[in-house]
Amino acid sequence: MRDVNADRQRVLPRVAPLRRLAVPAGVLAAVAGAFAYVGTVDPNEPGHYPACPLLQYTGVFCPGCGGLRSAHAVVHGDFAGALQDNAMAVLGYAGFAVLWTVWVVRAARGRPLRLDLGPVHLWAAGTLLLVFTVVRNLPFGDWLHP
């Protein structure tokens, strides 16, 4: 019979601390590189990035519309502007920062990162995105337009 407590207390194999942090460091380097690129190549100037096809053909803002402008504003320290461009993207950036920090701390301690997202969490996230998308496209939600 399997010991449930042993599964909960499972630790990563004995690996040098620097090797355990290699993957989180690589992910951070990739994300930092992407933010550095968006910070130097201004998405507010036409021709640098492709236009959102949903916005271009229907006039409807998708949940990602304004995400690059939001990232550009974050890189330049304009957090109010980032929230104006895409509030959900800013929440995503903050969520990534928290998740990455937890990942690094757990990896440094030799513990695996476990995300126990159930259907309720996924449905809640999907509903939040859907409500955000609908509200930003209604007349009273123009404050959410990028």
Rank of each mutant, 00 (worst) to 15 (best):
A89G: 11
L138H: 08
Q56V: 02
R114P: 05
V105G: 04
R14M: 15
R106F: 06
L91Y: 08
V98D: 04
L129N: 00
C65R: 08
Q84P: 08
A87Q: 08
V41K: 07
M88E: 13
A82N: 06
V105K: 02
A36K: 07
H48G: 11
V135M: 09
F96S: 11
N86H: 05
E45C: 14
L83G: 09
G126I: 03
G141D: 00
P112Y: 12
N44I: 00
V120D: 03
R2T: 13
W100C: 09
G39R: 03
D78V: 11
A22P: 11
R19T: 00
Q56C: 10
L28F: 15
L68Y: 06
M1E: 05
A34F: 05
V38R: 03
D42Y: 14
W100Q: 09
M88T: 04
G59W: 09
D3F: 14
Y93S: 14
G26R: 07
P46L: 02
E45M: 09
V102T: 08
L12W: 14
G59C: 10
W143L: 00
A82D: 10
G66H: 01
R10S: 07
G81Q: 03
Q84W: 12
A25F: 12
L28P: 15
A73E: 04
R106G: 11
N44L: 09
L12N: 12
L117Y: 01
V41A: 14
R69E: 11
V75L: 05
T101C: 07
G64I: 07
V41T: 13
F35K: 08
P50V: 15
P146D: 02
A73K: 03
R10C: 13
G92P: 09
V4Q: 05
G66F: 01
H48Y: 15
A87N: 12
A22R: 08
